[in-house]
């Protein structure tokens, strides 16, 4: 198991957002977490990645207890994430966004005298090419369209060649074509790099097409997990989730 989550709990001012969530993911698996709005998906991501402190529970990553580690330490162990609401460096260029991630990943960030523009040019361009941003390299990232920003977000996460990648609604706000292109891209990269992928997504078609396993969250609790077929036919899931799906 590359990632094991045990009995996660988190409440905000008495409101229990995540209530005893446990699951494990094997190396190389493509998993998704689904659930209605407010189910607690993003909060689970926030607890795993050290964005929020948890109330109870444990997170084991690659055999290391990361429960109380700071976010940057967890990153350095090989876990990266993207954010539901785009989270980039708006007044830097697209190139600089991805290059910064590379600098950090390759341990060059504490270098004071090498001109930064000479570093990792090709690698950065290669990553931009992979996420379809090669033509926007010099654009201010904050002025990109929403879909491009989402792709950039993915590029930043991929720059560090993570073992585990957590994507929080990677296609939210994208058009149908953009969505299928992005999903195709994510699936391809995951296979090429042997990535372990955990993602959340509202688009059911996307979820059922690329997930190998699906975890269903409802009001902070996991109500079931299984293959797409098992989840699709589960009566509880139909009741709480699919019944009200868009």
């Amino acid at each position: 198991m590359i990632l094991t989550v045990e009995n996660l709990k988190k409440s905000f001012d008495g409101f229990v957002a995540v209530n005893g969530v446990s699951f494990s993911i094997e190396k190389g698996e493509l998993c998704s977490i689904i659930g209605p709005n407010g189910a607690g998906k993003t909060t689970v991501f926030n607890l795993i990645t050290g964005y929020l402190p948890l109330d109870e529970g444990r997170v084991i990553f690659n055999g290391v207890d990361i429960t109380h580690m700071r976010a940057y330490q967890i990153c350095r162990l090989g876990m990266r994430r993207s954010f539901q609401r785009t989270n980039i460096f708006p007044r830097l260029t697209v190139f600089e966004n991805v290059q910064a991630a590379l600098l950090a990943y390759r341990g060059k960030s504490f270098n004071f005298f090498t001109p930064v523009e000479t570093l990792f040019r090709e690698e950065t361009e290669a990553i931009l090419g992979r996420v379809g941003l090669q033509d926007h390299s010099n654009a201010m990232s904050g002025s990109l369209s929403y879909g491009f920003q989402k792709q950039l977000e993915l590029g930043i996460a991929l720059a560090s060649e993570p073992d585990v990648l957590l994507l929080d609604e990677p296609t939210a706000g994208m058009s149908t074509e953009e969505t299928s292109a992005t999903i195709e891209l994510i699936g391809r990269i995951a296979h090429e790099k042997g990535l372990t992928l955990l993602f959340t997504e509202h688009d059911m078609e996307v979820v059922f097409s690329i997930s190998e396993r699906i975890l269903v969250l409802h009001q902070g609790q996991m109500i079931t997990e299984g293959s797409p077929d098992e989840v699709r036919t589960n009566p509880d899931v139909q009741k709480v989730y699919l019944g009200e799906a868009r």
């Binding site: 954010f83 460096f89 950090a104």
Partner: peptide, 17 residues
């Protein structure tokens, strides 16, 4: 460069390690 990423978005900078 990392200082400027901190200026732009310190939270995200933490998540590039």
């Amino acid at each position: 460069r990392i200082l400027t990423t901190i200026r732009e978005n310190s939270e995200r900078t933490e998540f590039i390690g």
